[in-house]
Design a protein around this nucleic acid. Structure first.
Length: 104
DNA sequence: CGAGTGACCGCAA
DNA sequence: ATTGCGGCCACTC
């Protein structure tokens, strides 16, 4: 990964690396990009950044869906279910589906 | 360049 | 258990 890459570039790159059937939390992504408390930024990048990235694989700390996701939480849920991700109480089991770039 | 804003997170009433 | 508030960082306008 380019050390000179901006936070946004790292986030987009990282999101793009999330394999199907796996999810990441905003805080996890922010921490992996060097700013553990910049979870909001990840959301901001999701809104302004590259729309071609699998943002549906990005969930909040509760494993739930993002409020501002186009189409609502329901659309994101369907997108994840299409990748064999099981939802429980409108949230995924992070113990099973949480993916980390360093460890696999 | 400055100010506003947010697809969050955590704690407090 | 639910609701409200603040903080924090980077992005956009």
């Amino acid at each position: 990964m380019k050390p000179s890459a901006n936070f946004k570039d790292r986030v987009e790159h990282l999101v793009q690396l999330i394999p199907p059937g796996r999810v990441m939390t905003y805080g996890q992504i922010a921490a992996s990009c060097g700013s553990p408390m910049a979870a909001r930024i990840v959301g901001g990048i999701a809104h302004y950044g590259n729309p071609g990235l699998p943002w549906h694989r990005v969930v909040n700390k509760h494993g739930g869906c993002a409020v501002g996701y186009p189409g609502g939480v329901l659309a994101q849920r369907e997108a994840l279910e299409a990748e064999r991700v099981e939802f429980t109480h409108n949230a995924v089991n992070l113990e099973v589906y949480l993916w980390q770039p360093h460890v696999q």
